[in-house]
């Protein structure tokens, strides 16, 4: 049986109550919006990419503990990484919380606190919303945020 404590770990509460990089990025060159119509969660991810490296990242929005903590942890994980590394992290993170064959041990650092989500299929979308939005931002053409 899945345990609530596996889902709601201390780190999750910490990042939910004190989300990191929870702000828009002035001069962001890429921005994407995410929306989960099932629960009404919204997120906006801001990126500044310099020489193929995520120089700065931030987010805004409104969501549950899982989606907010996941977004916060994501910004910490991808800052300073290359675009390719960020995409690879997304792939591994996604596999960790959705693939039943995926081993329990990962090399995802702090992101591993979210591995409990695997036992809560209804909450997978909460945990991946930020990542899907990041992916869209990385793929998207440069869009100055000032025009919004």
């Amino acid at each position: 049986m899945s345990d609530l404590r596996d889902l709601y770990q201390e780190v999750i509460f910490d990042h939910y109550k004190h989300p990191r990089n929870f702000h828009r990025i002035e001069g962001a060159d890429r921005v994407a919006e995410g929306y989960n119509p099932l629960c009404g969660d919204t997120i906006k991810v801001f990126l500044k990419v310099e020489n193929g490296i995520v120089a700065d990242v931030g987010f805004e929005g409104c969501g549950c503990a899982i989606s907010t903590a996941s977004a916060s942890l994501m910004t910490e994980a991808v800052k300073g990484r290359t675009v390719a590394e960020a995409e690879r992290l997304f792939g591994e993170f996604h596999a960790m919380i959705t693939d039943p064959k995926e081993p329990a041990h990962h090399d995802l650092g702090k992101l591993e606190v979210l591995c409990g989500v695997k036992e809560f299929p209804t909450r997978v979308k909460c945990a991946t919303l930020a990542w899907h939005t990041l992916h869209n931002a990385l793929e998207g053409k440069a869009e100055p945020v000032s025009t919004e």
Partner: peptide
């Protein structure tokens, strides 16, 4: 206050 409805529903389910 401080608890999103989705988290409430998950905890209530348990």
């Amino acid at each position: 206050d401080g608890v999103h409805p989705h988290d409430i529903a998950t905890i209530l389910d348990h």
